[in-house]
Simulated scan of single mutants.
Amino acid sequence: MSHEETATEAARRRERFGALPERIRPQDMVETRPAIPHDPDRERYDADEFAVRYGL
């Protein structure tokens, strides 16, 4: 068997592997989201908690 390819094999190979996949932009490869969900109660000021933490 010869190492030379026939025209049909070459055409079949080009049809299958001839085009590169569509390029993906780096911005599309990254997903950003907060590590923890936003909790409004966590940021609420509590006078009693402040007094216990810093006053005693």
Results as ranks from 00 to 15, higher is better:
1 M>E: 10
1 M>S: 15
1 M>D: 11
1 M>Y: 05
2 S>T: 14
2 S>H: 10
2 S>E: 12
2 S>N: 13
2 S>G: 13
2 S>R: 05
3 H>P: 07
3 H>D: 12
3 H>T: 09
4 E>S: 07
4 E>W: 06
5 E>Y: 07
5 E>H: 10
5 E>F: 10
6 T>S: 14
6 T>I: 01
6 T>K: 04
7 A>N: 11
7 A>D: 09
9 E>L: 09
10 A>H: 07
10 A>I: 14
10 A>E: 12
10 A>T: 09
10 A>P: 05
11 A>D: 01
12 R>V: 06
13 R>L: 07
13 R>T: 10
13 R>C: 00
13 R>N: 04
14 R>A: 07
14 R>V: 03
14 R>S: 04
14 R>N: 01
16 R>Y: 04
17 F>Q: 09
17 F>G: 08
17 F>W: 11
18 G>C: 04
18 G>D: 11
18 G>M: 08
18 G>P: 04
19 A>V: 15
19 A>R: 15
19 A>C: 09
20 L>M: 15
21 P>V: 10
21 P>C: 04
21 P>D: 13
21 P>E: 15
22 E>F: 11
23 R>C: 12
24 I>P: 12
24 I>R: 15
25 R>Y: 14
25 R>P: 03
25 R>A: 15
25 R>Q: 14
26 P>M: 01
26 P>G: 11
27 Q>N: 13
27 Q>S: 15
27 Q>F: 07
27 Q>W: 05
28 D>Y: 03
28 D>V: 02
28 D>I: 00
28 D>K: 06
29 M>S: 12
29 M>F: 03
30 V>E: 07
30 V>A: 12
30 V>N: 03
31 E>K: 12
32 T>K: 04
32 T>R: 07
32 T>H: 05
32 T>G: 01
34 P>V: 03
34 P>N: 05
35 A>C: 05
36 I>A: 14
37 P>K: 15
37 P>D: 13
38 H>W: 06
38 H>G: 06
39 D>R: 07
39 D>E: 12
40 P>T: 06
40 P>Y: 12
40 P>Q: 10
42 R>F: 13
43 E>S: 03
44 R>C: 06
44 R>Q: 05
44 R>F: 05
45 Y>C: 06
45 Y>I: 00
46 D>R: 01
46 D>N: 08
46 D>I: 00
46 D>S: 08
46 D>T: 00
46 D>M: 02
47 A>W: 00
47 A>E: 00
47 A>L: 00
47 A>K: 02
47 A>S: 12
49 E>V: 10
49 E>I: 11
50 F>W: 09
50 F>V: 14
51 A>W: 08
52 V>G: 03
52 V>E: 14
52 V>P: 00
52 V>S: 03
52 V>A: 06
53 R>N: 03
53 R>A: 08
53 R>K: 09
53 R>L: 04
53 R>Q: 10
54 Y>S: 07
55 G>I: 03
55 G>M: 04
55 G>D: 01
56 L>V: 14
